[in-house]
């Protein structure tokens, strides 16, 4: 290569002009145009977010008060006043019960996927199916619980709603927990095994604690999502105007009340819907922020 090449007798090379202004105008314009389109896309998405938050905050703040959070819902949508007490109670009870059902099941399922099943056929099937289950519309989950539970016990109840929300949370928790378990370095498992710990002991006292912050933050996000689910609650929880702190009997949630009142032509009902929306947004926000704090404060360093 070096032997055959004869140096062309060219003039001294002119250094390439690498300044941006040296580019042809068309290329510069296309570049600038495409960049501003990307910025515009961002703006298009953020404007609705800003508007939603603004409207919910401004319309809701006028209404929200301690009384609003504890008083009964007026049984005529036309009537002003009253509050969302039963809906707040129902949201807490139903979401709590759903979480109590879905969290252990979801975390155990994730442990199976990451610690035992790994890449075998069953684990892969479960993984795909939980992805599919994540995509099942919430209204279908509501119908499912109606058919398989409400029709059997012949009563609409808060527990039925909790079952439906639990089913919606389960795949989300499984997949997010599995991600977190996968981040736990294998050296920890090996060290524990070398000390003579059994598999379950290793999992419970070494792997889980190492991944717990990520798992908790995933769970919190799942709870925030479930608290805002409406369709299943509308289908299986029935209606109620006074607080019901138990899982038995009809119940309601903030989301269901927003849906019901938003469709009413009366200003009083619409106001209550805005108030309920602000309350719900605050609950969701608290869980989301908590999730972020926990995951950023105690995250395992990704390797």
């Amino acid at each position: 290569m070096t032997t055959t090449a004869t140096r062309p007798a060219a003039a001294a090379p002119v250094p390439a002009d690498l300044r941006r202004s040296a580019l042809p105008l068309r290329r510069r314009l296309t570049d600038g145009f495409s960049k501003s389109l990307m910025g515009l896309a961002l703006l298009i998405a953020l404007i609705p977010l800003g508007l939603v938050i603004f409207h919910v905050a401004s319309r809701g703040l006028a209404l929200i008060s301690w009384e609003f959070l504890i008083e009964d819902i007026p049984n005529s949508a036309r009537r002003a006043g009253g509050g969302m007490g039963p809906a707040v109670a129902g949201t807490l009870v139903i979401t709590g019960a759903a979480a109590a059902m879905a969290i252990p099941l979801g975390v155990l399922g994730a442990i199976y996927l990451n610690e035992y099943g790994k890449q075998n056929a069953l684990a892969r099937l479960i993984r795909t199916m939980s992805d599919v289950m994540t995509g099942v519309p919430s209204v279908v989950m509501g119908l499912f619980i109606y058919v398989s539970y409400v029709l059997v016990v012949k009563e609409q109840s808060g527990f039925a709603a909790a079952l439906a929300l639990g089913c919606l949370m389960l795949p989300v928790i499984i997949r997010s927990s599995e991600e977190m378990l996968r981040l736990v370095p294998d050296e920890l498992r090996q060290a524990s095994a070398a000390l003579g710990a059994r598999r379950w002991k290793t999992t419970v006292s070494v792997v889980l604690p190492a991944a717990i912050s990520g798992i908790v933050s995933g769970v919190m996000l799942a709870i925030a999502r479930a608290a805002g689910e409406t369709a299943p609650v509308v289908l299986v929880a029935g209606t109620i105007f006074t607080s019901n702190w138990s899982l038995d009997g009809a119940n309601t949630t903030l989301a269901a009340q927003i849906f019901k009142n938003a469709g009413e032509p009366f200003v009083a009902a619409q106001d209550r819907a805005w108030g309920a929306a602000l309350t719900l947004m605050l609950i969701v926000l608290v869980f989301t922020i908590a999730a972020r704090l926990i995951s950023s404060r105690f995250a395992i360093k990704e390797r």
Binding site: L49, V56, G228, E229, F259, L280, V284
Partner: peptide
């Protein structure tokens, strides 16, 4: 990313309420 996540966190019923009334 935080803002976009926030957009995902808004419950659908709130979008519905905003949609029908605003």
């Amino acid at each position: 990313v935080t803002l976009i996540d926030l957009l995902a966190a808004v419950p659908s019923v709130v979008f519905g309420l905003w949609g029908i009334l605003v």
